[in-house]
Amino acid sequence: MSEVVETKTEVDFTESPQPQNPKRLSGKNSFSKNIPFYLILLPAVITVFMMQYLPMFGLLIAFKDYSAKAGIFGSPWADMGGFANFVTIFETPKFMDAVWNTLWLNVLSLVFSFPAPVILALLINEVGHTGFKRTVQTISYLPHFLSVAAVTMMVNQLLDEYGLLNAILKPLGLEPVYLLKDADAFVPTYVITEIWRTVGWGTIVYLATITGINSDLYEAAQIDGANRFQQVTKITLPSILPTTMILLIMKMGTLLGSSFEMVYGLQTTAWKDEVIATAIYKFGINQSEYGLSTALGLMQGVIAFSLTFIANTISKKVANISMW
């Protein structure tokens, strides 16, 4: 807490002697005059400092041989110049498995669930009947509002031996499937559930962008004899490209950060795949391997930021589209 207050007064000290901004009404926007504003700010500053800034010191644990008794600052530094935990991660199969699983799940969901909302948005946009369009949109939002706990429960009941899937397969004369007991079924189930959960909600941004396209463009294209398909490929798609690129860049940052809730919720006796987030929880909190788990989390954060940065740089160079 004290630090924050300090920085504030410091800034006041350096800034107040100079005239702030010639446009200001009176020019005497002194610190004391603004005290009510700082007071209003105080609860937010205290909360964010305690809840978000204090845990940042906890990142030190990644470089320490942590023991609960000695605490974060008291614990000795880890071997190999503090990097022992990171080396252990690379040498431990259970951690590396989690890293590869995370990457694999995210690459798959990037390939399949990223384009899905674009396609759905284009199709919804082609609907002429307003009522039908609205209904389809509203229904497609439903999964977004369901909790992950409910979703995983539904997946469980759907794929159960006696569940809906087999109830539908049976009259069609198809063999029943036992997906919940099949370890290989986890990855496809995860990816399909993610598409189901996110596709409808994902269309919002694209539909808003499509609505914003200047209708003159389409009229001009029609006069030039472009058919509907050409209008979509030559006008609609290029118009939503900037939005798509930004969303893609943001998605790159999550390549190592798959949803804890989804994976943990889906896990069963047969589906045992761990991702980074579940590994951090299980090895960190359940098995008290604090140093290793924090190192794993830090690694994930750094890689995520680098991926976003790289994707943004490439996009800036190639298409001149940038997040910042």
Binding site: T7, Y53, P55, M56, F57, I61, G297, G301
Partner: peptide, 27 residues
């Protein structure tokens, strides 16, 4: 014209990019 406004903005922006992670929060 609030004195220290940019510091305040930065103070609230940083947690968007850096987080202590689950274990640190837990402790």
């Amino acid at each position: 014209g609030l004195p220290g406004r940019s510091v305040i903005v930065m103070f609230f922006t940083i947690p968007m990019f850096i987080s202590g992670g689950l274990i640190a929060e837990y402790i």
